[in-house]
Design a protein around this nucleic acid. Structure first.
Length: 285
DNA sequence: TTCAATGTTTAGAC
DNA sequence: GGTCTAAACATTGA
């Protein structure tokens, strides 16, 4: 489930683990998963790790490595203890590499970072460090929702680019607000008590303020429980305890709403599965 | 066997 | 140009 909160969790975890380590080898098992010259990454020390929406950036000095996990990417760090992040699968606990391992980073202290990606939509790209924010995956992104500068007025102004769009589809536009994917878009609408089909133009300023808070709550809850999933893992309790266990609506078609006990409904919006509670969430008229 | 799956880009139709 | 939909990428599991 690599959306913003998962990538943030990975960033925080890797900052503690690999900053200061030198990359001594990069092994590529799937050519399409690694773009650029791997020699530019080898032999360099990890200086810092940043996140731009769903893109993870490992800074190495002259060059940087950008990661996008897309739908099924996961990063597994093994250095005595194991740290995992990204798409949750039971085999995260097993020995690495496995059949889904696309790229392996070996560090100077003998530890490893594995990039696994079942569907191979994800990628790692080597870029000049000065070009990170100019990369095509980053340069067109809208505001970071967790930055102080982000406000409900900014959200409203950006949403108004899509007056006729259903609100749930509009907040997934990465130029409106970056990092909100399909799971958190449904959750944000639930938090806001708004029907995901409501047109942007029908939302009042009050609704916009509420939506702003709803988006932040969804993302913060995700980060909170992403961390909890990691804790479970370290305790060898398997892959249970990740955010989807705490989701109000996503993936809960036919189940009882956690607030009112009505049945959660699933529809398709903008070609994507969309979940909501018809009782809690109303179309704004 | 068919369909949907956490993301993004691109082609094509209005 | 804007806006929107569908397809493409590759694989798995229900």
């Amino acid at each position: 489930m690599p959306e913003l909160p998962e990538v943030e969790t990975i960033k925080l975890g890797l900052q503690k683990k690999i900053v200061g380590l030198k990359i001594i080898k990069i092994q590529i098992n799937a050519a399409k998963s690694f773009i650029g010259n791997l020699n530019l990454g080898q032999g360099q020390k990890v200086l810092n790790i940043k996140r731009y929406a769903k893109v993870l950036a490992i800074e190495l000095g002259k060059n940087s490595l950008l990661f996008h996990l897309k739908m099924t990417g996961q990063l597994i760090y093994d250095g005595g203890t194991r740290f995992v992040g990204g798409h949750p699968t039971p085999d995260m606990r097993d020995s690495m590499p496995n059949s889904h391992t696309r790229v392996i980073f070996s560090f100077s202290d003998g530890s490893h970072l594995y990039f696994n990606d079942q569907r191979r939509f994800g990628w790692i790209r080597v870029v000049d460090s000065g070009q990170v924010t100019g990369d095509s995956s980053i340069k067109n992104l809208g505001p970071e929702p967790l930055e102080k500068e982000f406000s409900w007025e900014i959200l409203k102004n950006n949403l108004l680019k899509h007056k006729n769009m259903p609100i749930k589809v509009a907040i997934m536009d990465q130029t409106v607000v970056s990092g909100v994917g399909n799971i958190y878009a449904s959750e944000a609408c639930f938090n806001t008590k708004v029907d995901p089909r409501t047109k942007v133009s029908q939302l009042t300023d009050q609704d916009m303020k509420s939506l702003y808070r709803g988006v932040l709550k969804a993302l913060r809850d995700g980060i909170k429980y992403g961390g909890s999933s990691r804790a479970h893992f370290v305790d060898s309790e398997g892959h249970k305890g990740y955010f989807l266990d705490y989701a109000f609506v996503y993936g809960r078609n036919g189940h009882k709403c956690k607030v009112c006990e009505n049945k959660i409904k699933k529809i398709t919006l903008g070609g994507r599965g969309t979940y909501f509670c018809p009782n809690c969430q109303k179309v704004v008229e």
